[in-house]
């Protein structure tokens, strides 16, 4: 347990590489196997459809006997994901982890979490409240956030460019868009009300 289990991690990476249809991928950051980035496709038929979500993965030296640390790098509007820092509330990433699970299965579980939120065991209380009390609003916000943050840089950049054309500084435009959950009109409101 003294050092990173390189063999197993490499095996896992090869397996993920081979199965291209799974909708998840993992890449290494900076040559070190302990820092990885995963991506998952937003499940079809959910407000996250069409988005690609980036997950930050950190492996400890005791992996796979301890769970990998995963947080969303992409901003996600979801009851079990912190909208502020991307922290994830999922049992298999905590006490229910088992060494027979892999990075791939963990990422697939995250994908499943996106399609079936657990508002009764929330990470983000605000989102969970909205999910329970005003489901339609939740769907709209989640979709806006997906369009704004998870469709690659293109979506956001386009919107920023539009606002810049209107004469708003790029930085302010981006901040307003993030605040408004990617909705252009809402961002304008934010900008002009301040």
């Amino acid at each position: 347990m003294a050092q990173l289990d390189v063999n197993r991690i490499q095996k896992e990476l090869v397996e993920i590489e081979r199965d291209k249809n799974s909708g998840v991928s993992v890449t290494i950051i900076g040559g070190q196997l302990s820092r990885l980035t995963g991506t998952i496709k937003g499940p079809i038929g959910t407000p996250y459809e069409g988005g690609i979500f980036v997950v930050d993965i950190t492996l400890t030296k005791s992996y796979p006997f301890e769970p990998p640390k995963m947080t969303f790098k992409t901003k996600v509007w979801h009851p079990n994901v912190s909208s502020a820092n991307g922290a994830i509330c999922l049992d298999i990433l905590k006490d229910q982890w088992s060494p027979a699970l892999t990075l791939k299965t963990a990422l697939l579980s995250l994908q499943a979490l996106l399609s079936t939120p657990e508002p009764d065991d929330p990470q983000d209380a605000v989102v969970a409240q909205q999910y329970l009390r005003n489901y339609q609003d939740y769907v709209t916000t989640a979709r806006n956030w997906t369009n704004a943050f998870a469709t690659g840089d293109r979506g956001l950049q386009e919107k920023v460019a539009k606002l810049v054309e209107m004469g708003i500084p790029a930085e302010a435009a981006q901040a307003a868009l993030e605040k408004a959950g990617g909705d252009e009109n809402a961002a304008l409101e934010v900008l002009f009300s301040s």
């Binding site: 289990d5 063999n7 197993r8 095996k11 397996e15 060494p99 027979a100």
Partner: peptide, 11 residues
């Protein structure tokens, strides 16, 4: 059926 691979070390 026998799978001869361990699901912990994957070998």
């Amino acid at each position: 059926a026998l799978d001869l691979h361990c699901s912990v070390c994957l070998e």
